[in-house]
Design a protein around this nucleic acid. Structure first.
Length: 496
RNA sequence: GGUUCCUUGACCGAGUGGCUAGGUAACGGUCUGCAAAACCGCUUACGGCGGUUCGAAUCCGCCAGGAACCUCCA
């Protein structure tokens, strides 16, 4: 039985994870706002919580993983005066808002699939849950924590803070914030600068709008997660995740909303992944310094010296702990690419090993060491280090300098399959999209390469080095890397 | 200005009081017709200055540098 500890932002320490309902876990993660191509930053939470989802499932929990799609409600820079982001983009491109949503959502899904991020159990759209959001706003109004102003509804932060602590998640207090709040113009609708919108009345040109008791308009920035989390996971659920940049105000507002509407805090464990930086700065939409995932995959961005495979990106992210920032650079990515390739070589060699009578290596504690690392707040870099450590043994056995018994070999293969493939979600197969035909084709060309190398072996036996080198050289030009071994040869292919 | 956090060897990146990960690169060695791969080694790195302690990268204080959030952001 494994005991998972996770870092809870609420308590600022690691806590043993205990689910609300035995055997089941409710997990909610803030998903993307689909008005632009997914970039490297989007990969971080997706992969982080994919690992959590996979791991919890592996521990035997029945997990309901909800990751929302924000397709309404977020305002432009000028806060309340702005128009809906989706609507603005739609007008610029003369597309229907839902067309824009669908386009970028498809691209997001495609990128996530390439990164081997499993789809969540439910992927609710904010636009599909307007009724739930209106109901929740009404509840907050009924409970006296909100007020209507010119057709919009605002959360009364000051009132809420009299009986609850607004700022408990992000470690702030209302007094500090009041002194630091900038005086934005055009906020006369609000009683207080800190109050946030629960419902916004739409301006005449605003095309995304829904009827409500207060006005034709759209829901506020934060209510969707509270409404959809409650709808699918209940008034109280286990884990809520997201990027650290959402800690304040988004998640803080979520807590206030659920307390105001339901009279209870919905979330037991708050988890936040750190940012990916570029030149030491956060990679993000607002700074315009982001590189899209597609650009990584095809190497088209000017800052990239080459293309990087999706698995390289995934491995790169997993080599750092999710609560640390990770700095992007070509150098770091290239190191990950080689490291990943090495790990995959180890994995495939492991499948080829022949068992011996007894083992000269001791890897019996590998499984638990990997579990221990995962149990310690999902420490994937340490899991990876254990795998590499075991990889040295694998290579030694492969070279004939060590031996492994049939039982130990079986265990080792199981542990690798479990952690490399199942939990870390890395792809151990040489090609990802398998089908019977491609498999047969691959088998055929493998046989041909083997045949050529048999010929080369003969040439070598005859000391015909010219012939031997010629075969190797020409194969190399086609992308086949030939490696001589004691028994004969080994080879692998990668794009030349 | 407020809140939170970070600073590890050539590079990336684990590590919350003694056992000093891992990857990448460079270099040396083994193996080998050559090469590649693999294996071994690479001689103790933790921003600075103090303090606590038998003992600190790890705890405390000060200083320096950097970041995130306070506005849409993963």
């Amino acid at each position: 039985m494994q005991q998972l500890s996770i870092y809870n932002t609420l308590s600022r320490q690691k806590e043993v994870f205990k689910p609300l309902h035995q055997g089941r876990v409710g997990l909610y993660v803030c998903g993307p706002t689909v008005y632009g191509d997914p970039h490297l930053g989007h990969a971080r939470p997706a992969i982080t919580f994919d690992i959590l989802f996979r791991y919890l499932s592996r521990l035997g929990y029945k997990v309901r993983y909800v990751r929302n799609i924000t397709d309404v409600g977020h305002l432009e820079n000028d806060a309340d005066e702005g128009e809906d982001k989706i609507a603005k983009k739609a007008r610029l491109e003369e597309l229907e808002p839902m067309e824009v949503v669908q386009y970028y959502l498809n691209r997001y899904h495609k990128a996530m699939e390439a990164l081997r991020v499993l789809p969540p159990s439910i992927e609710p759209h904010a636009s599909g849950h307007i009724i739930e959001q209106i109901r929740m706003v009404q509840k907050i109004l009924d409970n006296g924590y909100a007020y209507v102003s010119k057709g919009s509804v605002y959360f009364d932060v000051e009132k809420y803070n009299k009986s609850h602590h607004y700022g408990k998640l992000s470690g702030r207090n209302i007094e500090d914030m009041l002194s630091a709040t900038r005086s934005l113009e055009g906020q006369d609708e609000k009683k207080n600068a800190m109050d946030f919108a629960l419902w916004k009345k739409a301006s005449p040109e605003h095309i995304m709008r829904w009827p409500s008791p207060w006005s034709d308009g759209f829901p506020g920035w934060h209510i969707e997660c509270t409404a959809m989390g409650t709808r699918y996971l209940g008034e109280e659920f286990d884990i809520h995740g997201g990027g650290m940049d959402l800690l304040f105000p988004h998640h803080e507002c979520e807590i206030a909303q659920s307390v105001a509407a339901l009279n209870k805090e919905s979330v037991r464990y708050w988890m936040h992944n750190n940012m990916i930086t570029i030149n030491g700065q956060k990679m993000g939409k607002s700074l315009g310094n982001f590189i899209t995932l597609e650009e990584f995959f095809n190497g088209s961005h000017p800052m990239l010296t080459q293309a990087y495979a999706p698995m390289t990106i995934r491995f790169f992210i997993l080599q750092a702990h999710y609560r640390s920032t990770v700095d992007f650079s070509n150098e770091a990515l290239q190191a990950s690419e080689k490291g990943y390739s090495r790990l995959m070589d180890i994995y495939s060699r492991l499948q080829e090993l022949e068992p011996a009578e007894t083992s000269t290596v001791n890897l019996s504690d590998l499984r638990q060491k990997c579990f221990d690392a995962m149990n310690d707040d999902l420490n994937t870099p340490v899991v990876i280090s254990h795998l590499f450590e075991a990889g040295k043994a694998v290579n030694s056995i492969f070279d004939g300098n060590a031996a492994i018994s049939a039982g130990d070999l079986k265990e080792l293969r199981e542990v690798f399959a479990l952690f490399v493939s199942e939990i870390l979600g890395l792809d151990p197969s040489t090609a990802s999209q398998d089908n019977a035909k491609a498999e047969a084709e691959r088998a055929a060309y493998k046989a041909v390469v083997d045949l050529l190398l048999e010929l080369r072996l003969e040439a070598k036996a005859n000391k015909d080095w010219a012939q031997a080198d010629k075969i190797r050289k020409q194969l190399a030009e086609l992308g086949f890397k030939v490696m001589d071994t004691k028994e004969g040869f080994d080879w692998k292919w990668s794009a030349p």
